[in-house]
Design a protein around this nucleic acid. Sequence first.
DNA 1: ATGGCCAATATGATTGGA
Length: 263
Amino acid sequence: MRVATWNVNSIRQRTDHLRAWLAERQPDIACLQEIKCVDDAFPREAFESLGYNLAVHGQKTFNGVAILSKLKFDEVVIGLPGDDTDDHARFIEATVSTPSGVVRVASIYLPNGNPTNTDKYSYKLKWMDRLSHYAKERLKLEEPLILAGDYNVIPTPDDVHNPAAWVNDALFLPQTRERFRSLTHMGFTDAIRATTDDRGLYTFWDYQAGAWQKNWGIRIDHMLLSPQAADRLTGAGIDKHVRSWEKPSDHVPVYIDLAIGVP
DNA sequence: ATGGCCAATATGATTGGA
């Protein structure tokens, strides 16, 4: 089974890119972030015609997440538990059945948090605390679980071209990285880091200042695996070349391969 | 790490992104 994640920065602007990449990489499940439209505006037919089922949690103008799956969904959960007043569309979770059992996947769009002297940063930290609480509960199920998405977290200095330039940024502050580590310490595996120690592996390059051309990138899109998923991990990768396509998203896809058979 | 971008909005300027 292949599972992937991609912040597409508007699904309507990236429909053709996503179709091309799906044909190329052939994921069984793809988590999307920043679809930037309401549910009814999602171009469903473009993906249903490729054999994907869709679970969409959209929002007008901003945010929005979705999951595409070749396997049919058993359950879908909309919204991260823990705060009924949070109206941002940043979380959707689904389960599918395989011959070897259930697989649970979440598509996550964690808040950016800048500027850090505003309530945007406290919202980010609270959101991360909610995510930790949810993750700890889910671990008790002892299922293969993949928490995939745009975390807006640079985990270590090896994950950014110029660490010094990011020390005061919400993506790299100690409190942010501390909360990300709490996820790995409770038992989740960062799939990319489980397969390589290479530096300079990035998933985002800013549109501005020629960041792509200079390879000024950051690694902020992650796939965290429960022990039952990590035990079946056979490979992981970043589709960097997609950033060089015409009119690209500023993020590129990340994918994993699991030793879980699909019909 | 900011000179340089991009997307959505009844839009021609503003907000958000990272």
